[in-house]
């Protein structure tokens, strides 16, 4: 379709409310946050004028009580913990979700639709509420411990709350649908005749699994992993409510800096790091899908 100048102008007019809103209330705030990360912290909250890279220095070095700089692994540690927990959540969802996606892909269209609907349904309920439900389940004398005690199976407590495990369970629960859907999507396109042919040739089920099913659903697996990994990294609710505040993750660290610790520039700097990690993850995904497309063309 040839696009005339008049039409282009109209297109921009129609686009402008949405673009301006997102630009003004989302992009500009990000720029302000970036600027804040180079300013000085007001000890009682907010920022003071003056350019400094202190917030970024603080990420790697600590000023000792007598002001000498020394390398510190604290924040790298927190970043690492966030990445590790996000990875655990990703792998956990993959293990839990992959067979289910495969199972769904093998049903007839009607059943498929229903099952997919059931997978997504909990996802659309409040994050806080879903996390709270896990408090009911995991807490001392909660839904798991009570019946165990009643039948005399348990004496004392399992101590499941306030642990890394509890955080991981919460994260997996929260983001699981994001793993199942893309894997399903890539399997749905998968030609099951290939599997049939493979079974005829190789015979072994697990070989079929390893050499046919997994490679063919790789795009879905990659997408699912990114979709679970990215939000897990910035999670705030699960570490706060299920982790008992003992183990900071990036999300809670950022929140802390803007709340009770009142070090805005530092919080802004960590938020920038988080964004950087997210961008890297997205770029990796884009590259892998580009490579795939190139291979398909070839």
């Amino acid at each position: 379709m040839a696009v005339g100048a008049e039409q282009t102008r109209r297109t921009w007019w129609l686009l402008s409310p949405a673009l301006l809103t997102v630009g003004f209330f989302m992009v500009l705030p990000m720029v302000i946050l970036l600027v804040f990360s180079f300013m000085e912290a007001d000890p009682y909250g907010g920022v003071d004028p003056g350019f400094t890279v202190e917030a970024y220095v603080q990420l790697l070095f600590e000023r000792d009580f007598d002001d000498t700089l020394a390398y510190t692994g604290i924040y790298l540690g927190i970043i690492w913990r966030s990445i590790a927990l996000a990875l655990v959540a990703t792998v956990g969802s993959l293990i839990l979700g992959f067979p289910v996606a495969y199972y769904i892909a093998r049903q007839n269209t009607r059943t498929q639709n229903l099952l997919l609907f059931l997978v997504t349904l909990p996802f659309w309920t409040n994050l806080l509420i879903r996390t709270y439900a896990w408090i009911l389940i995991l807490s001392t004398d909660g839904v798991i411990e009570q019946p165990l005690k009643a039948i005399g199976f348990l004496d004392g407590t399992l101590d499941m709350m306030y642990s890394n495990g509890a955080i991981a369970i919460g994260l997996i629960y929260t983001y699981l649908p994001l793993m199942v859907l893309p894997i399903y999507a890539s399997m749905e396109k998968l030609d099951f005749r290939l599997i049939e042919a493979a079974s005829d040739l190789y015979a072994g089920r697990y070989r079929v699994f390893r050499e046919v099913i997994v490679p063919l659903s790789t795009p879905g697996i990659v997408a699912g992993c990114i979709l679970v990994f990215v939000p897990s990294l910035g999670a705030f609710v699960a570490p706060d409510l299920l982790g008992g505040g003992r183990k900071l993750m990036l999300g809670s660290l950022i929140h802390l800096q803007f709340a009770s610790s009142r070090n805005w520039p530092f919080g802004a700097a960590i938020a920038m790091c988080l964004l950087a990690i997210v961008m890297i993850a997205l770029m990796l995904q884009a590259r892998s899908s580009a490579r795939r497309r190139a291979m398909e063309v070839a």
């Binding site: 000890p43 540690g77 927190i78 900071l248 802390l256 610790s261 009142r262």
Partner: peptide, 17 residues
């Protein structure tokens, strides 16, 4: 004072890391 406040904040963040 601010110096003390900052030091305590550092101790606390390190504690919760």
């Amino acid at each position: 004072g601010p110096k003390y406040t900052k030091a305590i904040d550092k101790i606390w963040t390190k504690l919760l890391q």
